[in-house]
Design a protein around this nucleic acid. Structure first.
Length: 481
RNA sequence: GCCCCGUUCGUCUAGUGGCCUAGGACAUAGCCCUCUCAAGGCUAAAACACGGGUUCGAUUCCCGUACGGGGUACCA
């Protein structure tokens, strides 16, 4: 398998896994799965100051939630320190890099004078090799810079096509700090060579790093991988997505009742499409259909309304058995259900979820709608609904009393039997079913909107139905008096 | 400042010179279905940033301009 595709996702552990990173990870994962390749996870923790173990774990958790399993890793970039140093040593030995004895303070001073025009003036590039070695051995501190050659550096980007930089626009960048630790561009290239990465898929904020990295590959005598630069994800205001736009960490969406399948589906469509009008896709379908050449160049706005719609689509497609483990914990933690009831009332819960799953866009909404079926009494009556459907208290009470009698006699207790009883009640009263169903609905759930009335009555069970009607009758008689 | 990238309905997008009276999806509005609400179905409104070329013909190719974004660190 010499031509097996190897990709990597290489986040720096300086924060949670955010949606932009998640999409980058997803595209890498999809390409690997699509082609039978290898997906490597690498944690870029060379910046010790800003990296933390908790954040590394948070990123791993986010990936796991999304189901983006990795085949190798997580490898820590910091573990490659010796190799990085060795690579720098070789570049130094072959003259592709040189020691720079300018101190950060000196550089800053020059930058202050020249403002934005400043670019490193290569003064240390002219130091003869023997002198450079002598000063280093004498203990003078130095950083190592890459000697950018003349010419152009170009590549055929999988997303952007031909992309070209003039080397003169690239300064002799530092590859090794004074403290002997590598800089990002060197570490990335050294690691990607070491991991035999064939396709580098990352955000297009890295486009300007790419020529530097290609130069490094060439200097190190390694094959240059394919590059694919994905467009940025923006907030609704068109600015780069950030915390002030609200939820950006994938974990926050998990808490908001978003399904990982929906998140992946939505993220996949942010900058890519399957080429037809199909939008709702399972993970398997995404894997089947993904290809890099249908990735867009244009940055995209993250639209939570569409995410929620898509989540609703995925919830509706999720069998009740699979929905139960997602919703039950919410019901248990809000005290509506005892932990052991999840098992003992499993059939009833599945029956409920089967009905509710097309009625909510998040698992939180589903759980909220399940509430009235789990408590004994109606918790709150919607006044606007009462005003509309309980207009005449006497008449409503009469009708509810008739309904009560009919429901008390339904045998067996099935949705069909209930439906027949309600229709018969309406008919003998000489009104349409709506005139019976709406007042009853308010008596049962406190508002004018709910699933079908026969479902509500059946699911609530005879005892609670009769009790709630009795409560409604008390209320109506109080109002009439 | 300099370097680079981008620009189709409010948003995500289809479109690779004639198939475009620019298609789909979300959101919005209306209708249908109907015991209500969802879901579903149908319909409506809604876009090729601008200016030059090239061409018999440009959303599509080229050049400018404008606007947006990224980079320009001993951050990643």
């Amino acid at each position: 398998m010499a031509d097996q595709i190897r990709v990597r996702f290489a986040p720096s552990p300086t924060g949670f896994l955010h949606v932009g990173g998640a999409r980058t990870a997803l595209y890498n994962w999809l390409l690997a799965r699509r082609t039978g390749g290898v997906f490597v996870l690498r944690i870029e923790d060379t910046d010790r100051e800003r990296s933390s173990g908790e954040m590394t774990q948070a990123i791993l958790d986010g990936m796991t939630w999304l189901g983006l399993n990795w085949d190798e890793g997580p490898v820590h970039q910091a573990d490659g320190l010796e190799r990085h140093k060795g690579d720098v040593g070789r570049l130094l030995a072959q003259g592709a890099a040189y020691r720079c004895f300018c101190t950060p303070e000196e550089l800053q001073a020059r930058r202050d004078v020249m403002k934005e025009e400043y670019r490193y003036d290569r003064r240390c590039a002219a130091i003869p090799a023997d002198e450079s070695v002598r000063r280093a051995e004498a203990g003078e501190p130095f950083a190592v810079r890459f000697r950018v050659p003349e010419g152009d550096t170009a590549w055929d980007d999988e997303v952007h096509g031909d992309t070209r930089f003039k080397n003169e626009s690239i300064e002799d960048f530092i590859i090794l700090r004074t403290d002997g630790t590598p800089i990002y561009n060197l570490a990335v290239v050294s690691d990607d060579i070491d991991m035999r990465i064939t396709h580098v898929i990352r955000g297009d904020d890295h486009i300007a790093n790419t020529p530097k990295q290609i130069l490094l590959y060439q200097a190190m005598g390694a094959a240059v991988p394919r590059f694919a630069h994905l467009p940025m994800i923006l907030g609704p205001d068109g600015k780069r997505l950030s915390k002030r736009h609200g939820a950006t960490a994938v974990g926050q969406y998990a808490e908001q009742g978003i399904l990982p399948e929906a998140m992946n589906n939505f993220l996949a469509l942010l900058g890519w499409n399957a080429g037809d009008d199909v939008e709702v896709m399972t993970m398997d379908e995404l894997v089947q259909r993904f290809s890099l050449d249908r990735v867009n160049k244009k940055s995209a706005v993250f639209d939570t309304a569409k995410l929620e719609w898509m989540n609703g689509q995925h919830i509706a497609l999720t069998p009740a058995e699979n929905l139960l483990p997602l919703v039950a914990p919410l019901l248990v933690s809000s005290g509506l259900l005892a932990a052991e009831e999840v098992e003992s009332r499993r059939e009833w819960l599945l029956h409920l979820l089967q009905e509710l799953r097309i009625r909510g866009r998040t698992t939180l909404e589903i759980a909220a709608q399940a509430r009235t079926y789990l408590v004994d009494e109606v918790e709150q009556y919607d006044e606007a609904s009462i005003a509309k459907h309980w207009k005449n208290a006497d008449e409503t009470a009469q009708r509810l009393a008739a309904v009560r009698a009919a429901l008390a006699a339904v045998e067996p207790w099935t949705a069909e039997g209930i439906d027949a009883a309600l229709r018969a009640t309406a008919e003998s009263a000489g009104v349409g079913l709506g005139k019976v169903a709406q007042p009853l609905r308010i008596a049962l759930v406190g508002q004018a909107a709910s699933p079908g009335i026969d479902f509500v009555v059946h699911t609530l069970g005879r005892d609670r139905v009769l009790r709630r009607i009795d409560r409604a009758l008390e209320r109506l008689r109080g109002a009439a008096a």
